[in-house]
Design a protein around this nucleic acid. Sequence first.
DNA 1: CGTTCTCGTTAGCCTAGACTAAATCACGGA
DNA 2: TCCGTGATTTAGTCTAGGCTAACGAGAACG
Lengths: 226, 226
Amino acid sequence: MARLSGSRQDYLKALYALAPQGEVVPTSRLAAHLSVSAPSVTNMLRRLAEEKLVLHKPRGGARLTARGRREAILMVRRHRILETFLVRVLGLDWAEVHADAEVLEHHISDRVLEAIDRVAGRPDFDPHGHPIPDPRGRMQRRTLLPLASLERGARAVVREIRDADGPRMARWRSAGLVPGASVRMREVQRLDDVFELEVAGERFVTGSEGLDGVLVERRGGAGHGR
Amino acid sequence: MARLSGSRQDYLKALYALAPQGEVVPTSRLAAHLSVSAPSVTNMLRRLAEEKLVLHKPRGGARLTARGRREAILMVRRHRILETFLVRVLGLDWAEVHADAEVLEHHISDRVLEAIDRVAGRPDFDPHGHPIPDPRGRMQRRTLLPLASLERGARAVVREIRDADGPRMARWRSAGLVPGASVRMREVQRLDDVFELEVAGERFVTGSEGLDGVLVERRGGAGHGR
DNA sequence: CGTTCTCGTTAGCCTAGACTAAATCACGGA
DNA sequence: TCCGTGATTTAGTCTAGGCTAACGAGAACG
């Protein structure tokens, strides 16, 4: 199968990001996500439909075909392996590698991808905690819940931190709020929109903004972890 | 300074490859080297001249300006660091990494380049033995001579192997004819176009084809190396 | 000194993938 | 039912970087 252009890859990736289960996505949502005009989207959807990568019902939005979905998941795989590699092997900061991975994912050969996957230790999760699909598109399934939904006293382990802006991510990281960290909910002031947590044993107070991007796995037991 | 397009980078790289000292290069040579038509070259040279990256005397060929040369040398640096990284860190075969480096050199950020240079051990030479320019464009200077020019009995160390086709390179490599290997000239049959060498102590016989791409550094002494 | 041949340039066209402006569809409310 | 409005598509342009065909300059040769 001929190599898809970088632009096509971006459209498929966007469709997958906006509708991982293959739901219909309106033209305008795609345009906004990709920062292009609506006519550009219509135009590209027509081509992708001809190539059987999407189903495009005029004025009825678009959704991925099985083939399109497969390609999109491969892009996700490439991206996450690259991010993991940039952090674990090259030692770059995990809050800063996204842009580089975004570019490289379009230009890396299967051979090089395989090699960096190997030297990165065949990771199952990227530095943000996102699962990395295997070459056939399957990935680890976990049931995670937003950190903010924990009730008082509940313990959990941070598993995933979805893209947040740089400064917030930096603050979280310096407080130890990273994938793998154990947390306990201490107080919730919904009126003041403030959460008081224990992160790896340390007190940490934060506003709720962006906090729904922090996903945790509930930990049993009520012991005072240390 | 705005990022140069991949195409522009290729033209500058080609000009540098064909005229490392900044000599004038005819349009047709560039076209052949880049596998594009002559009008495409004329067209691009006009643009590069407007951007002060080349000097283009209509019907008189083109040559790099100081700025163009700087950009070209940076491309060489990127390429050679990438090749070294692909071999030393990712464990790929040095005869096969050229194409990957060719693509990636256009898309790698300075940050990632710096990091792979670091993990590759800040090499001064790439896996073919080519010197890697430093960030300011300077590189190690060596006086090398073609292997085929050695007289009978002379000893030398292989320093550089310029691109040869895959099969030949594979044969040389399996015989130990790689950068760093010591060699001794045993016989030269110019009529039959055959060279008999000692490579790392082993007898090795080869035709002359492509052999001028193997550059060596003469070794003093007449001892029977082992 | 004129002819020829080679090489380079001009002219015009193509594709991918953007864009804006204008047209049109579909749906909800009167 | 009809109309207004917002979303979407159509129509037409633009840029980068290719291409082929045709033209022209200058060297080489008779």
